[in-house]
Structures are given as C-alpha cells and as structure tokens.
Design a protein around this nucleic acid. Structure first.
Lengths: 195, 195
DNA sequence: GTCTATATAGAGATAGAC
DNA sequence: GTCTATCTCTATATAGAC
C-alpha cells in the first residue's frame, strides 16, 4: 500500500476489514486498529468517531468494491454456468487469503447482528439483497441458455445459493479449509447443472 | 424451569445458551448471566471458573441434546427424504424461537472461532463432523430407497447440505426470517429430489 | 492530523466472610 | 453456594496541546 495515494483513513479501513473478517466486530478494538496502523488510538478516533462509523465506512467501501467485481461477470458473454462459477470463486478466494481464516465481512457481521446499530444492519441486509438479485439474474440466464437446470422459484433458489455460499465459508473456515470449500462449491454447481 | 429439579448450574447454562445463540460469545458477559439468573457474578464464577469452561459445558450439553434429537430420526422407518426434512426442521425451529433472532450455537461460535480456546474449537468441529456423518448416512439411504437423487460424492454433498443449513440460518436471521428460512430449505429439498 | 492524558465503564477473575 | 469487595485489564470515547 502506497502511503502517498493511500491516506490514513484508507489504511485504517484496510486493517479494519482484515480484523473484522477474522475476529468479528466484537473481537476487535480501536486499539487493534491503532497498533496495526501505527498511530495512537485517539488518532483513529479522529478519522472515525465511533465503531459504528468505522463499520459504516467499511461496509460502504466493501459494497463498492464488490459491485466492481460482479458487474463484469454479468456483462461477460460466457454461459450462465460459467458466470456462476466465477462468482463462487469470489467466496473461495476469501478463504484462500493468508491464514485461511477470513470470513465474508457481511457474514461475520450477520452473526453479530444484535451488536450492530440499525444503520449497519441495513447495510448488511443491502449487501445480501444485492447478492440475491445478482444470483437470480444468472439463474434466469442459465435457464435460457440451458447451462443451468433446476425446479421451482428462481428467487427462492437465489436465496438458497447465497445461503450456501455464506454457510460454506463459515463451515470450511472452521473445518476443512479452502480445499473443502472448493469441493462444496463444486457440489453446488453440480446440483444446478443439467443432465 | 423448575428450580427443584433444575439447579443453578443448569439455569446458568440455559441462560448462557440463549445469550450465545443471540449475541455470540464476545457479545455476552458473566454480568449478563448474573443478571438473568438472579445471582452475583462471583456466584456464576463458582460454577464456571472461566468463560471457556462455561462454553465447554454449553457445547457438551448441546451436543448431548442434539444427539437425542437426531438418533430417533435415523431409527425411524420413513423414507430418507422424509428423514432429511425432519432434520431440516431442527434448524428452522431454532429461528422460530421467540424473537426470531437465535442462530445455531455452533454456527455463532464458528463465526467467532478466533476468540475461542482450542478446546472449544475442537468441540465445534466435533459438532460439525457429527452432522456431516448424519447427513451422509441419510443421503446414502436416499439413493437406496430412491427418495433422493443427486450426482457426485456423498461426503461432499453432505458437507454442502450442512453448509446450506448453517448459511440459511445465518442469512434468514438477518433478512427474511422464519418464512424465508423455510422456503430456502424447501428449495434445497427440491434440488435433492428425484425427477 | 497526531499526540498525551484522562474520563468512564465494563470485562474476567479472585479473596475471603457468611 | 452465595455474598461483598476488590484487582487488573481493556474497552470506547473526549479534551486540549503541538
């Protein structure tokens, strides 16, 4: 990270993202941010008055970055099944980061939902819904181009797919690691494949 | 809860289970236990020297109770698909408890895995593995009695099913609630059904 | 924008009386 | 088995100097 183009505020968010993905919101503190960034706790508070503010900024940035990752997937001319596989890879990649101990930011926060301010809860829900919509679109494409096959309602299936991704990350992070994660996602793709 | 047959230790565990399922391990304190049970913090420490001890007892009891719930399912003479549906119901029931805000005890702890002592981590893993084995057995039965149909490895599919259950609970607790949870589980049953 | 210093509250845990 | 009292540490957050 270049400190010229990457101000203190951004560096705090980098560290904050890492900490929340590993330890959860109740498992990290401003002192942890302070230690990792190399400035004092009071200086962290200068950038983010409260933990809620920090999490709000974290979620905001996370969702922006996430949007930049999924838009090109939708726009590509691959079959829907291939798009889905690419999308699944984003979740597998999370667990493959050093330590093999990172969860989905929003999955971690969803577990600690009752510790969050209403503002942050809405942001997490927004992320979830964005994902359902994205998956639903791919599922519809997949039925059209015949690269995917399944019975029943597309919206309900989209929720199931997203739930499975979040669950696979939660479970594999605890037991099995990236290998297990990939095998699980492969099984899910199998269930949605024709024939 | 009858206080004659239900000693203080058990009452602490009742409250502890409730608190961890709602708030997570880092979101609850011995003070919370003390308040809810109606004794002082020091008295809670008399029964459980540390938080790790309390969580160990919690997981021990949880797994025992869980075993008593799933054994009769396996022993019944229903088709495998019906057994699976009954098992799924255990997860749906969790979210239907008052408040609609309880998660799976082990799912919550899995999210906060890096805050746990190694002893507790192993207990959570043990619960997960017990579930994979249980599901795998039902999936094998389902292939035999033709009430279930799917391609690929049974062990990997069992992991996927369990991951989906944990994920469905995590996601529906945050967005959608019990109705959404049930619809999601229904979609999963659909994917595993023949025809 | 970062610092020192501090306020205030809560955490986990222990000693020892009853 | 429960209590009061206390220890020690850490948490979030703020005031005010540089």
């Amino acid at each position: 990270m270049n400190r010229r183009t990457h101000g203190t505020r951004e560096r705090i968010l980098d560290v904050g993202l890492d900490l929340v993905q590993r330890r959860g919101i109740n498992g990290m503190s401003f002192q942890d941010l302070s230690d990792a960034v190399g400035i004092r706790k009071a200086s962290v508070h200068h950038h983010f008055a409260s933990k809620t503010d920090m999490v709000a900024a974290l979620l905001d940035r996370y969702r922006t970055h996430f949007g930049r990752e999924i838009r090109p997937i939708l726009g590509s001319r691959k079959p829907a099944a291939a798009k889905l596989k690419t999308y699944f890879g984003l979740f597998a990649d999370t667990l493959e980061q050093p330590g093999n101990d990172k969860g989905c930011l929003c999955g971690m926060l969803a577990a600690e939902l009752l510790s969050l301010e209403a503002e942050n809860v809405e942001q997490v829900r927004g992320f979830f819904r964005e994902n359902y919509r994205f998956i639903e679109q791919i599922l519809n494409e997949g039925r059209s181009d015949a690269s995917l096959a399944f019975a029943g309602d597309t919206a309900a299936m989209a929720r199931l797919v997203f739930s499975s991704l979040e669950g696979a990350l939660l479970v594999a992070r605890c037991d099995g690691g990236p290998r297990s994660m990939k095998a699980t996602l492969q099984s899910l793709l199998g269930l949605l494949s024709p024939g």
